[in-house]
Simulated scan of single mutants.
Amino acid sequence: MGEHDWLAERFEENREHLRMVAFRILGSAPEAEDAVQEAWIRLSRSDADTIDNLGGWLTTVVGRICLDMLRTRRGRPEQAIGDHSPALEDVAVPDPEFEAVQADSVGLAMLVVLETLTPAERLAFVLHDMFAVPFEEIAPIIGKSPAAARQLASRARRRVQGTPEPPDADANRQKEIVTAFLAASRGGDFEALLEILDPDVMLRSDEAVVALGGAPELARGAAVVAGQFSGRAQAARLTLVDGLAGAVWSLRGEPKVVFSFTVTDGRISAIELLGNADFLETVELVPLET
């Protein structure tokens, strides 16, 4: 078997997966076929010996192609949704059986909601939530950091789920806990911090925050994390961070560090300190009064 034939056989092994990825990003079987065919053209022109994970490489390539197609679609505002959403149109397609199966698996309601997302949101959500592609691999496709890709997927997920805001009870409870945490931190109340923090709480800081100094990349355990915050967070202000209570430290009115909290069973189980520029551009911040 020649190298070209071997490569074609490996590609065929991945074709159905690639069609599903492309269909769920684009919502159109004909466009999905075009994206997969373009991926084959790019593969046939590449040096296959340099590709360690062919399946992952092909998924990334299809993702990039689909993103370009979505952005081109956005540049044609006169094009109606029915022109590219097969579940909403009644036209002949190359493979009606494939399209019917995929439209049923995705769901008409989801296809409609996906049309409201930005191309980057749609790609991040589909690749991560439907195909478990890590944000580290999604980030280069959309030209963002992994943290920014995570935020885009999170925002898309809330729209798809029809819950742009968390349930009021949970949101209010998180606000109370974060408010208590900030008060204990500013007051240097170590014991109060221990009460608020889960025993196995994890603190993570991205590279931008670590570079500012004073924050570790990773810390674990209530005593260690409480020690990091006791007597600090003086300038942090209570803020809605993508719909949930968190905090922001700003410099001359510009957000520099976002405090993102995960609350589990009434205690803070995780804290993320995020200062990446791409993340700060995409995160939704709404100041709260204490």
Score class of each variant (00 low, 15 high):
G2N: 15
G2W: 13
G2R: 15
E3K: 10
H4S: 10
W6M: 13
A8D: 10
R10G: 03
N14L: 14
R15T: 07
R15W: 04
L18E: 10
V21M: 04
V21I: 13
F23T: 03
S28C: 12
P30R: 05
E33N: 10
D34C: 07
Q37V: 12
R45H: 14
S46G: 10
A48E: 12
T50V: 11
I51C: 10
L54A: 07
G55N: 03
G56K: 04
W57C: 07
L58E: 02
G63N: 03
I65L: 09
M69D: 02
L70I: 05
R76C: 06
P77G: 01
G82N: 11
D83Q: 09
S85Q: 09
S85F: 13
A87C: 08
D90E: 15
V91S: 14
A92F: 07
P94I: 03
P94Y: 08
D95G: 03
Q102P: 04
Q102A: 12
A103I: 06
A109H: 14
V113C: 09
L114E: 11
E115A: 10
R122D: 01
A124T: 08
A132Y: 14
F135I: 03
F135C: 00
E137V: 06
A139I: 10
I141A: 12
I142C: 02
G143M: 08
K144H: 07
K144A: 12
S145W: 01
P146D: 11
R155Q: 15
R155F: 06
A156M: 10
T163P: 09
P164G: 07
E165H: 07
E165W: 06
D170L: 14
N172R: 14
R173E: 09
E176A: 13
V178M: 08
T179N: 06
A180I: 07
F181W: 06
F181E: 02
L182S: 00
A183L: 10
A184Y: 01
G187K: 13
E191A: 13
A192N: 11
L193V: 08
I196E: 03
V201R: 03
V201N: 06
M202D: 11
M202H: 11
L203S: 03
L203V: 11
R204F: 12
R204T: 15
S205R: 03
D206Q: 05
D206C: 09
V209F: 02
V210S: 07
A211Q: 13
L212R: 10
G214T: 02
G214H: 02
A215W: 04
E217T: 12
A219V: 02
V225T: 07
Q228T: 13
F229K: 03
R232V: 07
A233K: 01
A236P: 08
T239P: 04
D242K: 00
A245S: 12
A247T: 09
A247Y: 06
S250T: 01
R252L: 08
V257H: 00
S260I: 00
F261Q: 01
V263E: 00
V263L: 10
I268R: 04
E272N: 10
L273M: 05
L274M: 05
N276R: 12
F279Y: 14
L280V: 00
V283S: 00
E284T: 11
E284N: 13
L285C: 01
L285I: 05
V286Q: 09
P287V: 03
E289A: 12
